[in-house]
Design a protein around this nucleic acid. Structure first.
Lengths: 221, 221
DNA sequence: AATGGACTCTCCAAAAAGGAGAGTACTAAT
DNA sequence: ATTAGTACTCTCCTTTTTGGAGAGTCCATT
């Protein structure tokens, strides 16, 4: 029996044979990228809004200590391209033999994915996924690509927050009480509450604490 | 190359000669790095906890669009070394002529700084600073180095938070109310309050919202 | 003149914060 | 083996902060 089943993956079975369609959660990804994966979301000038690092700790250690990033052909491909490709298809030099070393950590076969949605800030997202037993199939590569694109869009920062709302959230995040905030801004406490309420609605947050943390992570304040 | 040296831990200067006073704030840095600067704090596997980007918007745009990062000799130096150096002293190839292009954006003379404090996660911090009118002086380079080291230490994540405290903070950050948290954890609401109170004390936070945002930014939850 | 959006306010109920006190668990020193 | 110290956990009680409903103002657009 395949490790992939309906519950884990969401197959569709159209006319010809089983088809992998959509990865819903990190669990689904874990099943495909058995030996680890790494996703960086919304990389701007140099760094991302969020990263998911599910690579083996030993490899992360080795990679960090040797500062492989700038020499890693996978990273180089990701920075230079958009789309998805198997590691084996990347035609770039690997003078530090990063990929060979990766193999000794169980990262033998892999996929690199990069996407960009034409946003003004030039933010890009990318991921790399690995397994040791066999090469990834085309449908799997496409599914991983779609997954990263989905996360990329999900992490699009909200654009409808007003200046006043962001201002209030910033002050909440900095540990100020409503009374202080109101005083500093020269408005009523109720006004501050209303701003926070609007912000929470727009962000889908349950509490001001959550809303403040969210805008912080989006880099909006 | 030594990863660790005295200068990484404390900034002292011998008594003789004019001494550049310590850089206290980003304003001080702005005065020195007239044409812009960039600081990345606590870069782990690949990305930092925080970045300060005060480079000219046009350059950031150009740099991002052309994905210079992997080709930038300054970045390559920073990843490979510890200490501080004038751009002009970096002896690395620049096939994409990143530095030449930087000049056309007012970034003519510059300094690169990198530091590492021997922490377990291998986190490093670095910065690069630019001006167009003249080369940086040795004392200025040292002061900028000290500034980055200071920020690096300031961003050291607290290590004294208990599992219970982090757990509570995480749930606050996710928008849960104390009642919910208490129920989920199977403890009294008072217990949750106490955990949050301890966390706030340890973090020097005024409110739970602030504490939750802080641990989030430290990457502790 | 009407509509919609952002902002403001008040009042009341619900939630969170803060203080004091006390029990438990584990460590290090006597 | 006892003791002291430290860190963590919990309860109870009071005060302060917050959240939520409803309504009003101001302003730009239609």
């Amino acid at each position: 029996m395949s490790l992939l089943n309906d519950r884990d993956f969401c197959f569709k079975r159209p006319s010809k044979g089983p088809r992998l369609t959509e990865l819903k959660s990190s669990d689904d990804v874990q099943l495909l990228a058995k030996n680890g994966y790494y996703i960086a979301l919304r990389v701007g000038f140099a760094f991302p809004l969020e990263e998911v690092n599910a690579l083996p700790a030993a490899w992360v250690d080795h990679y960090t200590t040797h500062r492989f990033m700038l020499h890693d052909p996978v990273i180089r491909w990701i920075y230079a391209n958009t789309g998805a490709i198997a590691w084996s298809g990347i035609d770039l030099p690997d003078p530090m033999r990063v990929l060979d070393q990766a193999q000794t950590f169980g990262l033998r076969y892999g996929v690199a994915v990069a996407c960009f949605d034409g946003n003004r800030e030039g933010q890009r997202s990318f991921g790399t996924f690995a397994r040791s037993d066999r090469e990834f199939e085309r449908a799997e590569i496409d599914a991983l690509h779609a997954y990263v694109v989905k996360l990329h869009h999900a992490k699009a920062p909200p654009t409808n927050l007003t200046k006043a709302e962001l201002e209030a959230l910033k002050m909440v995040k900095e540990g100020q009480r409503l009374k202080q905030i109101a005083h500093t801004l020269g408005v009523s406490e109720g006004a501050v509450k209303q701003r926070l309420k609007n912000a929470k609605t727009k962000l889908g947050a349950q509490t001001s604490a959550q809303a403040a943390a969210m805008v912080g992570e989006f880099g909006l304040i």
